[in-house]
Amino acid sequence: MFKMVLSVIVISLSTSVIAEGIEPETVIENTISLLIAKKTNEAFDYAISSNKFFADKKADVDRTKLQFISFIQQVGSPTNCEKLASKTLIQRIRKDIYICLSEMQPFEIHFRFYKQEKFWVVQSFSYSSDTDELLDSSIEMQISNSK
């Protein structure tokens, strides 16, 4: 089985407003739908689309986008993504983790949001192919719960 160990690539977008009134669930659902539809470019662009600092970080964003596209080309587009966890702190900070199943191997997608005064903003979007730690910790949790 092909195993790609890739360091987590994160794009921090501390002040990127998706759109007024759009909730994190919508951002996540649309990004994942585009990935499953094999529209990797569009999925990446959508996940970070409203970064008002795009011009300042364009080179970094373009480099990360190429790495993400290359990763998806190597493992294949996901056929399914399922939520593993969602945690909200003080009703203003939120992280969602999804596991996506592709042809070659599973991978994780992480979304981090921050709620400014009125609107949620994307703080970061990242992915990782290293799902071993996640699997090991869930097995350990299942064993300890069964005792």
Rank of each mutant, 00 (worst) to 15 (best):
M1T: 15
K3Y: 15
V5H: 14
V5W: 14
S7L: 12
V10D: 09
V10Q: 06
T15Y: 15
T15W: 15
S16R: 05
A19T: 04
G21E: 11
I22C: 05
I22R: 11
V27N: 13
I28Y: 11
E29G: 07
E29C: 01
T31E: 02
S33L: 13
S33R: 13
S33N: 15
L34T: 12
L35Y: 07
I36A: 07
I36W: 08
T40K: 05
D45A: 06
I48Y: 09
S49K: 15
F53M: 14
D56I: 11
K57T: 06
V61N: 02
V61D: 01
D62G: 05
R63K: 14
T64K: 12
L66G: 00
Q67D: 08
F68A: 04
F68R: 02
I69P: 02
S70D: 08
F71W: 09
I72M: 11
I72T: 12
Q74S: 08
Q74W: 10
G76Q: 00
T79Q: 06
L84A: 11
L84T: 01
A85S: 14
L89P: 03
I90N: 15
Q91W: 14
R92Y: 14
R92M: 05
I93C: 05
R94D: 01
K95F: 10
D96N: 13
I97M: 10
I99L: 05
C100M: 01
S102V: 06
P106T: 09
H110K: 03
H110I: 06
R112V: 03
F113S: 00
F113M: 01
Q116N: 07
K118T: 05
W120S: 03
F125C: 03
Y127H: 06
T131Y: 01
D136R: 10
S138C: 02
M141N: 02
